[in-house]
Amino acid sequence: MSDPRFGLARHIVLPGPLPLDGGGRLAPAEIGYETYGTLAPDGGNAILVCHALTGDQHLASPHPRTGKPGWWARMVGPGRPIDTDRWFVVCANVIGSCLGSSGPASLDPATGAPYGMAFPVITIRDMVRAQALLLDHLGIGRLAAVVGGSMGGMQALSWAATFPDRVQACVCIASAARHSAQNIAFHEVGRQAIMADPKWRGGDYYASGDPPAAGLAVARMAAHITYLSEAGLTEKFGRKLQGREAKTFGFDADFQVESYLRHQGLAFTDRFDANSYLYITRALDYFDLAEEHGGLLANAFRGTATRFCLVSFDTDWLYPTAESRTIVHALNAAGAAASFVELSSPFGHDAFLLESPTLDRVIAGFLGNGR
């Protein structure tokens, strides 16, 4: 169906309206996605990879806006841990986002103008339901595995809980079964930064062509700090000055770490929509898998035949190892087959996106067990 070496970019309008957890339905619902590898005649070699908050479907192919390699190009491809010579890999942009799937920037059929804040609030489970309809369209009834890190890990867990008969294996990396108060607090800082930008205009900024870039950049800066570790920041930047011999005694970016964060913030505004940031962070904050299953996390996995692999990193303070252990305990209580490993890395939460031979071996080994 696609050259194993390159992603095949695709786009569909899902048949029928998409029911939402918040009530109502989304119609039309569009999905941008990419595929890698070749689907087996029986459809049994499909793996769904779910992206994180600011990720997209450009998993292992160059990003069309930035030209940078796909966000997990080191993990997906011929001979790589998720081997496209063997697996047919699908990655879809989540609904609520801004890179081909329905979101606030999409046109509202009722008005002919972008939805803006009239777009319905969505949940992680809504994202998963949309992905299930996409897989129906592709003729994939059952997944060999669903894999994701961070918000992608939440989608993977939601897949296993919502469609247990469609998931043979689940890989959840650097994630959690619900968002903590601290996580919600950081997201609220980012949302308030966007909404305080005069250019936000209540979410109605598309016609102006002048989005709230300053507010979105600050939101990204605040979030980016949570993706790193103190040790990593200290090792990379310390208190080193940026291109100068002495402090300016002003408010320019005197320190390298300040310059780095400003660059991250500005670069982000070139590829992401501010309203989408509001919607997806809200979906993350609403995520609570136990709440969806009577208040007991084990209920989400009761009776499942899905195999689980949980991975955490010792310097990740956004989704620390304790969060993964909570999931493992629930899986054990539910009698599910589960393996768990905490990996050592200086890179904090972002470790799952960076070079990690140990993570590569864990994923390749776990998927290999399904032969």
Rank of each mutant, 00 (worst) to 15 (best):
D3M: 11
D3R: 09
D3V: 11
L8H: 13
P17L: 05
I31D: 00
G32F: 01
Y33E: 12
G37M: 02
P41T: 09
G43P: 00
I47T: 01
L48W: 04
V49C: 04
V49D: 00
V49P: 00
A52L: 13
A52Y: 01
L53D: 06
H58C: 04
A60Y: 03
A60S: 13
S61L: 12
H63N: 15
P69V: 04
W72L: 06
M75N: 03
M75S: 06
D85A: 12
A92G: 08
V94I: 11
L99I: 15
A105E: 12
L107T: 13
M117C: 15
M127S: 15
R129Q: 15
Q131H: 14
L135F: 05
I140A: 03
G153N: 09
G153E: 03
Q155W: 15
Q155S: 12
A156S: 10
W159C: 02
F163A: 05
P164H: 09
C170T: 09
V171A: 10
S175V: 06
I184A: 14
A185C: 12
V189I: 14
R191N: 06
A196Q: 13
P198G: 08
P198S: 14
R201G: 07
G209H: 07
D210R: 15
A217P: 04
A217F: 08
A217T: 13
H224L: 12
H224G: 07
E235K: 14
L241Q: 10
R244I: 09
F249Y: 07
G250Q: 11
L261Q: 00
A267L: 09
T269Y: 12
D270K: 12
L289K: 01
G294V: 06
L297N: 02
A298H: 14
R302F: 01
G303Q: 15
A305T: 09
F308P: 00
F308T: 03
S312R: 02
W317Q: 13
Y319P: 02
I327P: 01
A330R: 07
A334L: 10
A338N: 02
A338D: 02
A338M: 11
V341M: 05
G348Y: 04
F352W: 13
L353Y: 01
L354G: 02
E355Y: 07
F366N: 01
G368I: 11
N369W: 03
